[in-house]
Design a protein around this nucleic acid. Structure first.
Length: 850
RNA sequence: GCCGAGGUGGCGGAAUGGCAGACGCACGAGACUUAAAAUCUCGCGGUAGCAAUACCGUGCGGGUUCGAUCCCCGCCCUCGGCACCA
């Protein structure tokens, strides 16, 4: 094996809740373990066979850790009247034991929790790197607020009807200063890199000459992610190139800017709409006869929750402001300005130019009798053409009258707009900046200090990690501030710049922070459980912290972390749930790009191949949920059936990427199969020659499993194994000792315990490990075995017979046709000479009579 | 409305242009057993037939092809995600 090659297989690390591992987790991590075990065997180098640790030299990384900060643990601790520091380790220790019980062969000496100060010190260091790069800023951002509990709430604590999930009070919003990350600065790259050629980053993991991986090197080496998830990322970023258009309000010194993504249709616009929450609305009507009606409308709109607003039946409503603007597209015309609830702040400018060519605008204009104009002849006489089609020939459109709409004329219009100085090109994004503050206890403290004279100061690297103080009471405060703000002795500090008294930032980081870079940490992480006597990451970092350097973390990153990261990253296979399709993946990609720009990483995309698992439903076909009482606990089934049958069942139950309902009865089939194989091994003498048919099947099975594993078609791999055993035992066929060993080897990724037992029954002693000699290679040359080839014979495309042809002539068309025609059944159907004969070598003959 | 994934026996599913229903579950019959469980053997899409066999059959309608579960066009349904996005 090429020493520069590696394989990094990663399952999205779990949030260790008190309920323990879920069968959905088991489905993901069994797949990760199957792949990891396969790649380890595959990476075995026969030339190092004599060295004791040929396997250990292979650079296959399959780590596991715990995403342990965040709201659920904090709320669970509050509920149980304890502290997160106590329940979190309890939870992840339980997760680890459950995983070990399932024989997951993860690199346990690399395990960590994001709540470990050694880990979150590095998270804080990365935060400061982003901060120093100017990607973190402070802004007033509204949070969800429960006026009764006097507490800030996460979105998930607010029910769809806008009430607080715990007390039922209607929630509101409260403005708080928050730290925000400028992810929008990276919007373009986050979008275009989805299609970028990743070059050699992609090649590093190609050493295992597996079927699909071999294909990759020939295809474009852009991200190999499910199409749907790529699409969701694109939509979430939501890049729109358009124009910002300027309008003067008649009789006022006021400009209204509107964004348009379809500028070529602007000649049709006949009115404008402004969002009720737009800051200029009040100014527009101040002191006019419209003031009261508009104010009333604003108040009404404010009471409607965002949820209600997005309901389908939601009625488009508005009121006239009494104001008009000029229309730069139709000089001399004026556009009435309405306030309407279908305009929202936060997209575009909050002000829209409206026309008959937008169904929503059209509906609104019809309702309020606003004059309309159309610039493209209708196709359907009942409705105006929709601008989104961007098709048609313009009429009544100033200098563009008579132009056919095309990408070229759209460009011309944009140019014309800029020439006329009535607007300018602008790109908008759906993506917003990322609110990074949480007014919560259980998260990484944000390592900033507020000084009266020096303003906000970053904590020096030497002071990291900034540890979370142990608190007995950590419930949210009634001002909405973080619970940390109450801990006077912790908050009180000195300014790193001037040394005067200063206050620590009391907000903590969101749950996402730890998961933004954990895949990097696994590359260099060493925990204290190591057997090999090497220093743990904690100890190494301590040495740096106690050194003279002012930048111990930067030094550590450069000297320790970076070389290991370069060795293993990017992640070759990333397996997890589709629920992270947008946020986690986007945030992690964002941090990766920033770290790349800072020179801390050598690659721009963290996850090369992404696969999402299908949900496991309860036996009743519904989602598993405590409230339905239909949750299957993996502990119970492992106890009842054993770990190998559970692993096998999770892989066998259906296509890995599709939803399937759990069926405990089907599980017994897995145990039966494993017992049957073991019996078959015990009954087989070890001194036989393998039957030719079986040898051929075994060779095919090995190839099938290799392809199946990299394509995540685990279900058919297992079916293939079952089929093989059925062939073996139902016929009077025999397997040699060597081939019995081979079958044990290919079973190993799926059912490692059973595979080891089979290996031993096949004559190896227990000090020999089934995975230790690599992946079996069985070569059968075509024709060597001399088995007859089965031809399907069709008449007019309809199957009429099946004919065996001796292997020596099985590829010779003339000979095959002769033999096929000799069959009685074929002769019966073959009336007259065929007009055409289709011959597919080794497979099929089709006589076409008509 | 848009985007995505699906629709095949009683059930989970297999077959990605070439023998539809592999493999497993459930079910039925038989063997073993005093009996049951377990295990083993056989059967198991529908219709007709004692049978050989024939016809029908992969959500619906059309098309391409010697040949379509698979590719193309138009619909229907289920699940997941997003949405007054200007």
């Amino acid at each position: 094996m090429d020493k520069d090659k590696k394989m990094y297989v990663l399952g999205m690390f779990p949030y260790p809740s008190g309920d323990g591992l879920h069968v959905g987790h088991v489905r993901i991590y069994t797949a990760v373990d199957v792949m990891a075990r396969y790649f380890r065997m595959k990476s075995f180098d026969p030339s190092t066979r004599s060295t004791r640790s040929g396997l250990l030299q292979a650079r296959v990384l399959a780590p596991m850790g715990w995403d342990a900060f965040g709201l659920p643990a904090e709320n669970a601790a509050i509920k149980n009247k304890t502290i997160p520091q106590e329940i979190v380790p309890k939870n992840y220790n339980n997760f680890r034991e459950q995983m070990k019980a399932l024989s997951f062969s993860f690199d346990w000496e690399r395990e960590f929790a994001t709540t470990d100060p050694t880990y979150y010190g590095l998270t804080q260091w990365i935060f400061l790197e982003l901060y120093k790069k100017g990607l973190v800023y402070r802004e007033q951002v509204p949070i969800n607020w429960c006026p009764k509990c006097k507490t800030g709430l996460a979105n998930e604590e607010v029910l769809p009807d806008g009430t607080h999930e715990r007390c039922g009070t209607a929630t509101g919003k409260k403005d708080l200063p928050q730290w925000v990350m400028k992810i929008t600065k990276y919007a373009d790259r986050l979008l275009s890199d989805l299609d970028m050629d990743l070059g050699e980053d992609f090649d590093k993991g190609l050493s295992f000459d597996s079927p699909q991986l071999a294909q990759d090197s020939q295809a474009t080496r852009s991200l190999d992610w499910p199409r749907g998830i790529l699409e969701m990322q694109r939509n979430w970023i939501g890049k729109k190139e358009g124009v910002r258009l300027f309008h003067k309000v008649e009789g006022m010194d006021l400009q209204l800017d509107a964004f348009s993504a379809y500028p070529i249709w602007c000649f049709a616009d006949t009115f404008m709409v402004i969002a009720p929450e737009h800051p200029l609305v009040k100014e527009l009507v101040k002191g006019s006869e419209y003031e009261s009606s508009v104010t009333k409308f604003i108040e009404e709109s404010a009471q409607i929750t965002a949820e209600q607003r997005t309901e389908e039946k939601f009625e488009k409503k508005g009121v006239f402001t009494g104001r008009y603007t000029n229309d730069p597209f139709n000089p001399g015309s004026r556009l009435p300005v309405w306030v309407a609830n279908f305009a929202v702040m936060g997209f575009g400018t909050g002000i829209i130019r409206c026309s008959a060519h937008d169904p929503r605008d059209y509906e609104f204009a019809q309702k309020y009798n606003i004059q309309l104009k159309e610039v493209v002849e209708r196709i359907d006489p009942l409705v105006p053409v929709n601008a989104h089609t961007n098709e048609g020939v313009l009429k009544d459109s100033g200098p563009f009258t008579g132009s056919k709409i095309s990408s070229q004329t759209i460009e011309e219009v944009k140019e014309w707009i800029e020439d006329q100085k009535i607007g300018r090109r602008e790109t908008t994004y759906h993506l917003r900046d990322w609110v990074f503050s949480r007014q919560r206890y259980w998260g990484e403290p944000i390592p900033l200090v507020h000084c009266k004279t020096c303003g906000v100061q970053a904590l020096p690297e030497k002071d990291l990690p900034l540890e979370l103080p142990d608190l007995k009471s950590y419930e949210p405060t009634d001002t909405g501030e973080s619970p940390l703000s109450r801990v006077t002795e912790w908050v009180k500090t000195t300014c790193p710049k001037c040394g005067e008294e200063a206050r620590r930032e009391t907000d903590t980081m969101p749950n996402w922070a730890g998961s933004c870079w954990y895949h990097l940490a696994f590359a260099f992480w060493k925990n204290a459980n190591r057997q090999d006597g090497e220093k743990s990451t904690h100890d190494v970092l301590e040495v740096y912290r106690k050194s003279q350097s002012d930048t111990p973390y930067t030094d550590f990153w450069r000297e320790v972390a970076r070389p290991a990261i370069d060795k293993y990253l990017p992640v070759d296979w990333y397996l997890g749930g589709a629920e992270h399709a947008v946020l986690h993946l986007l945030y992690a990609r964002f941090w990766n790009k920033v770290l790349y720009d800072l020179g801390h990483l050598s690659f721009t995309e963290p996850y090369l191949r992404l696969r999402s698992v299908g949900m496991v439903l309860a036996p009743d076909g519904r989602k598993m949920s405590k409230s339905w009482g239909n949750v299957i606990n993996p502990d119970d089934v492992v106890k009842q059936y054993g770990s190998d049958p559970v692993r096998l069942y999770e892989m066998f139950m259906g296509p890995w990427d599709q939803v399937t309902a759990w069926d405990s009865r089907a599980l017994v089939g897995m145990r039966r199969f494993l017992e049957r194989v073991q019996k078959a091994y015990e009954d087989s003498p070890l001194d036989q020659e393998t039957s030719p048919l079986l040898l051929q099947k075994l060779a095919k099975l090995v190839a099938h499993i290799e392809r199946g594993i990299v394509e995540q078609k685990f279900n058919t791999c297992i079916a293939g194994c079952m089929e093989f055993v059925n062939e073996w035992k139902n016929g009077s066929l025999v397997l040699s000792r060597e081939h019995m060993g081979n079958f044990a080897q290919i079973m190993c990724p799926f059912a490692p315990k059973t595979a080891q037992k089979l290996w031993e029954i096949a004559g190896h002693d227990s000090s020999s490990k089934v995975e230790a000699l690599g992946w079996p290679q069985i070569e059968v040359k075509e024709g060597e075995i001399g088995l007859p080839v089965v031809y399907a014979v069709q008449i007019n495309g309809k199957l009429r017979a099946v004919v065996e042809v001796a292997s020596e002539v099985a590829r010779d068309k003339e000979q095959v046709l002769k033999q096929v025609r000799a069959s009685q059944t074929v002769a019966k159907w073959l009336v007259g000479e065929p007009k055409r004969t289709i011959f597919v070598a080794g497979k099929l003959v089709n006589f076409v009579l008509v």
